[in-house]
């Protein structure tokens, strides 16, 4: 054997890899898997249900009805002069996307332990597929929201959309990024410390109340507003509602703060996830 042939290995399996080596090239190579996983999620969720994909609409609708009754009519929380249905549906649609992404992503190692333990593929595919398949679901629910929105717009119910509507894709991207980043951090931690799983369901609920989903920012007094503003999700939900209805607040600086947080979460999440994916089979 000559020594010139030393470095033609296609791969070296070793204990450590570079902390920022996310193997994005490999992820791209497995893009078909991502598509198949999204498809699987769809087929699996609504197989053997009578209503099938109609549930996509029913879920937010039912939640909206409940919110209208409890928060709107019983608790009488202000909706900034907006029709209650539209106000809640707006918040719920966006929030559900975040909550679904986060909860699913955070248990990704535990849920897929049987697959991860047998076959290798870039693990990042799994959380990505969750975000994408929830995006499809969000898309459908967003259509529902648009229908209601157009109805109220035509009826002339104090709904004033504005130019910030073009920010919508960016807002969704931000939501996805925060959910993915936070989800990956939590998923990495839950492999070893299961306690977090119990905290999570509670945490997501709590987080919803710390985000202006069921109330507008304008109703808050200065003391609470600060807390709510620290939450990077607040400005996203608020901007989304402002863009479509014209009620609420918008500020570039808050949105910038959210973007920065999302970016940091994504980086930290990817690094942590990457570190854990290598050895999680020994601890899960």
């Amino acid at each position: 054997m000559t020594e010139t042939k030393v470095d033609n290995w296609t791969e070296i399996i070793s204990p450590q890899s570079h902390i920022l080596d996310l193997k994005l090239k490999e992820v791209w190579r497995y893009k078909d898997l991502l598509i198949m996983l999204v498809k699987r999620d769809f087929v699996a969720t609504y197989k053997q249900t009578i209503l099938g994909p109609i549930w996509f609409f029913l879920q937010p609708l039912l939640t909206t009805v409940i919110y209208v009754i409890i928060f709107g009519n019983i608790a009488k929380i202000s909706t900034d002069g907006l029709p209650m249905t539209l106000f809640y549906l707006c918040g719920i649609t966006l929030w559900n996307y975040f909550a679904d992404c986060l909860t699913k992503t955070s248990t990704v190692f535990k849920d897929n332990a049987s697959i991860f333990g047998k076959v290798y593929f870039p693990r990042l595919i799994m959380p990505l597929s969750i975000v994408v398949s929830n995006l499809v679901r969000f898309g459908i629910q967003f259509m529902l929201f648009l229908c209601f929105w157009i109805y109220f717009l035509v009826e002339g119910n104090n709904v004033h959309p504005n130019i910030y509507i073009i920010l919508t894709p960016y807002l969704i991207l931000l939501m996805a990024t925060i959910a993915l980043g936070a989800g990956m951090i939590i998923s990495a931690l839950t492999t070893k410390y299961r306690d977090l799983t119990f905290l999570l369901t509670f945490g997501v609920q709590l987080l919803m109340y710390a985000t202006p989903v069921i109330y507008p920012m304008s109703t808050l007094n200065a003391k609470y507003a600060l807390f709510i503003k620290i939450n990077p999700l607040s400005s996203i939900v608020e901007t989304f509602r402002f863009a479509f209805t014209g009620s609420g607040t918008f500020s570039w600086s808050y949105l910038g703060y959210s973007s920065l947080t999302a970016f940091i979460l994504l980086i930290v999440g990817s690094v942590v996830f990457n570190k854990v994916e290598k050895s999680f089979m020994d601890t899960v």
Partner: peptide, 21 residues
């Protein structure tokens, strides 16, 4: 370790070509 579902503690494996398990 070869199929990359877990990592070695020390040492390494060098591979030429695609591994399927």
């Amino acid at each position: 370790i070869l199929s990359k579902t877990t990592t070695p503690t020390t040492g390494n494996i060098k591979v030429k070509g695609r591994i399927a398990s």
